[in-house]
Design a protein around this nucleic acid. Structure first.
Lengths: 359, 359
DNA sequence: ATCGTGTAGCTAAACGTTAAGGTGAGAGAA
DNA sequence: TTCTCTCACCTTAACGTTTAGCTACACGAT
C-alpha cells in the first residue's frame, strides 16, 4: 500500500504538500499540484481514513443498531439512513441484535471502540435494562428510533403509535365490528404498549367494553402470531375483525386464517400497522397503517448531525411522526352484528387516502 | 476520552502493561492486573480501535455492497453476513448502491479508504463496466455474490440460476401448461440471462417452441413487472402460466393480475424465483424457488476469510448453490389445453418439498 | 544596498495504540 | 560474594496522517 510519503518522494515534494493538494487546505502552485496528482495516479494511492481519523479525532462513521433487519420497517429505515448519511459524508456501521439485549450491549461497546461519532438505536431491551451511567459512558450522541426509552436523555423519533392504533381501530369500527381482537407485541416495548393503548382508547370512545380475552401477545413475531391468532379464531365466538400490531405478525395471522379455512375479509376483517410492499399485492389487498419511514430516517440523521455540530448539550427533543391509514380491501361490513352508526363514519373518511398506494 | 496513558498513570504502571493486561499478550502479575482493571473501570476507558488499526494494519472491517437492501434476498443475505462476520471478529460496513453503478464505484473507493480488509460485492454494473486494473487497485480480496463478473478473477458464490429456472418451469410444465410467459430481468445481469436460459431449456426439453413475444423484461422491478405483465395478460391469447424471475417483480405481477380481474391460479398459474416470508401468507400461497441464503452468506464469508488468512493468491473458486422448489398453491392444472404427460411427471416430484415451509 | 513583507513549501510533532527490545531486581549456582 | 539467568515491567519507536509553525525566497519600498 503506497503511503503519502511514497507520493511525496515520487512527486519530489513534502508530505505536507501532498496533503494540502489532496485536501485543498492550502495553496499549492499549479505545477506541484500537477506533479502530485500524477504521482497519486501512478502509484494508485488512496488516503488512509484510519490514520486520518486518528489524527483528526473524527471517523465520519455513525452506528446503526436494529433488532431485526429482516423486518421491512427496519430494512427501509436502514436504507434511508444509509443513503442520507452518505450524502452528509458519513458511512454507517450496521449491527443487527437479533432482538437480543445482551448482543445489543456488546454492540454498544463495539460502537464506542470503533469511535463511531453518533448512534441511531432501535433499542430491544426493556426500559430498566438500561443504566444511565453506562449509556452515558458511550460519550456520543444517541438518537432512539421506533422504541422509546423515557429514562434516558436522548433524542428520539418515532411514530404516534396511539394514533396509529386508533386509526386502524376506527376504520374497523366504522365497518360495524364490535368484537375486535388484537394481536399485540411484547408490552415492555413502548411501541407495543402504546398500540394497545390506542386499541383500548378506540374501543372506549365507541362505548365498547374492553375484553382482555380478545387481546393476545404475538410477540411481534410471525410464529407466535400464528399460534395465538389460530387459537383466537378457532373459538366459537371468534372476533369478526383483528387488529394486528405489526407487519411480521400479519404473516402469521394470514397463515392462520388460511389454515382454518377462513377467508379475509369474508370471515374476518384485518387491519395491521406497518405498510410494506407486499401488502398491496395480497388477495385481498391489505389495509394498513403506514409509517412515514423516510421522514423518520431523515429526522434521525438530522437530529444526530445537529448534536454533532453544536456540542452544547441541549435538552433532548422527541419527534412524533404521523401515521396514515391506507385503505384497501381487507375490511368489510360486519353482517351478523347490528351496525347503526357505520355508514356515517365511513363517509367521513377521505377516500383520497388510497392515493398513497403504488408510490 | 480517557486514553491508555490515563489508565497507566492512574494504575501507576506503564502503557505497555495496560495493553498487555487488556489484550492478554504478556504475563502481568495479579496485583498490577487488578490495579489496571480498576483504573479502566474508574475512568470508563474503552480502547480506540482506530489507533489499534493504524498500528496493527488491521481494521477487522469487511465491506458489503448491495444494490437494494429492500429486496428480501439482500436483506436476509445482509443479516447472515453481518451475524457470521461478527462471530469471526469482523464488523461490516454496509453500502446500498441503489442499483447505480456510479455509486458503486464511489463506494468501492470508500471501502479502500476505510481500509476494509475484504469485500463482498453484489455487482450492479454490466460486465464490461469493470476495469480489471481498477478493481485490482482495491488491493483486497473480493467475493462476488448473486451476480457473476466472469472477467474478474474473484471468488464467487451464487445460485444455479439455470437450474432454478428449469425447476420452476418443469413444475409449470408438469401441470400441462404450454403457453408460458416469462417476466425476466435486465439481460446484462448474469442472474437474469441465466434464468432466461433455464426458461428456454425447459421449454426445449418438452419440445415446445420458444416464443419471444411471451418473454418480457420486467427489469427486476415491481413497477416494470406490473406494466409488462398487465400488457402480456390482457392479450386475447394470454399465457396460461407465468414464470417470474424474482421476488420484487412478483408483487407487480400479482397486482396486475388483480387489476385485470383475473385470479391466480384459476386464470393464470404463477411460479417465481426467490422465496420470501410473505410468499407463504399470500392467497394463494405462492409456489417459489428458494435460494439457500444462509449457505450463500456463510460461504461468502468463509471464502473471504480464507483469502485473508492465507495471503497466497490461489485461483478463484466459484461456488454454485442448489435451489429448491417450494411447492405451494399458485399453480394448477391447465384446463383448455391437452395435458397428456402431466400426471406421471407430477408423481415424480417428492411431496416432501413442502417440508421446507414454516421453517 | 537594506529592510520588511508576504507566501510557497517544508519540518516535525502529535493522534492512541502495540511490540520489540531493554532494564534491573531477585534467585540460584559457583 | 559474584556471576548468570529469568522474567516482570518499562521505554520507545513506529503506524500514516494533519497541521502548527518555520524557512527561505522574491519582490517592493525606502
Amino acid at each position: 500500500m503506497p503511503t503519502i510519503r511514497d507520493v511525496a518522494t515520487r512527486a519530489g515534494v513534502s508530505t505536507a504538500t501532498v496533503s494540502a493538494t489532496l485536501n485543498g487546505t492550502a495553496f499549492v502552485s499549479p505545477e506541484l499540484k500537477e506533479r502530485v496528482i500524477a504521482a497519486v495516479r501512478e502509484l494508485g494511492y488512496a488516503p488512509d481514513a484510519i490514520a486520518r481519523s486518528l489524527k483528526q479525532g473524527r471517523t465520519h462513521l455513525i452506528g446503526l443498531i436494529v433488532g431485526d433487519i429482516t423486518n421491512p420497517y427496519f430494512t427501509e429505515l436502514t436504507q434511508v439512513i444509509e443513503a442520507t448519511a452518505q450524502t452528509q459524508g458519513y458511512s454507517v456501521l450496521l449491527c443487527d441484535t437479533n432482538q437480543e439485549f445482551q448482543k445489543e450491549r456488546e454492540y454498544l461497546q463495539l460502537m464506542r471502540t470503533y469511535r463511531v461519532e453518533g448512534l441511531i438505536l432501535a433499542a430491544t431491551g426493556r426500559p430498566d435494562d438500561y443504566d444511565l451511567a453506562e449509556m452515558h459512558g458511550l460519550r456520543m450522541p444517541v438518537v432512539l428510533v421506533d422504541r422509546a426509552l423515557p429514562l434516558l436523555p436522548f433524542d428520539s423519533v418515532m411514530l404516534d403509535n396511539v394514533l396509529a392504533a386508533t386509526q386502524a381501530m376506527n376504520h374497523i369500527l366504522a365497518f360495524g365490528h364490535r368484537r375486535i381482537g388484537m394481536i399485540g407485541g411484547p408490552r415492555h416495548l413502548s411501541v407495543a404498549s402504546e398500540r394497545e393503548e390506542g386499541y383500548r382508547l378506540a374501543l372506549q370512545q365507541q362505548g365498547i367494553e374492553y375484553d382482555g380475552r380478545l387481546v393476545r401477545d404475538g410477540n411481534f413475531r410471525e410464529e407466535d402470531a400464528f399460534t395465538v391468532s389460530q387459537e383466537l379464531l378457532s373459538r366459537s365466538d371468534r372476533p369478526s375483525a383483528l387488529f394486528v400490531a405489526n407487519n411480521h405478525m400479519l404473516i402469521g395471522v394470514m397463515r392462520a386464517i388460511a389454515d382454518l379455512g377462513l377467508q379475509c375479509p369474508r370471515d374476518v376483517s384485518i387491519v395491521s400497522i406497518d405498510d410494506f410492499r407486499w401488502a398491496n399485492a395480497f388477495t385481498p389487498r391489505m389495509t394498513t397503517v403506514n409509517q412515514p419511514i423516510p421522514e423518520i430516517g431523515h429526522a434521525a440523521i438530522r437530529l444526530l448531525l445537529d448534536r454533532l455540530a453544536r456540542k452544547a448539550t441541549t435538552d433532548p427533543v422527541h419527534l412524533v411522526m404521523m401515521p396514515t391509514l391506507r385503505v384497501r380491501d381487507s375490511c368489510k361490513q360486519v353482517v351478523f352484528e347490528p351496525a347503526e352508526r357505520t355508514t356515517a363514519t365511513i363517509a367521513s373518511m377521505p377516500a383520497s387516502r388510497n392515493a398513497f398506494d403504488h408510490e
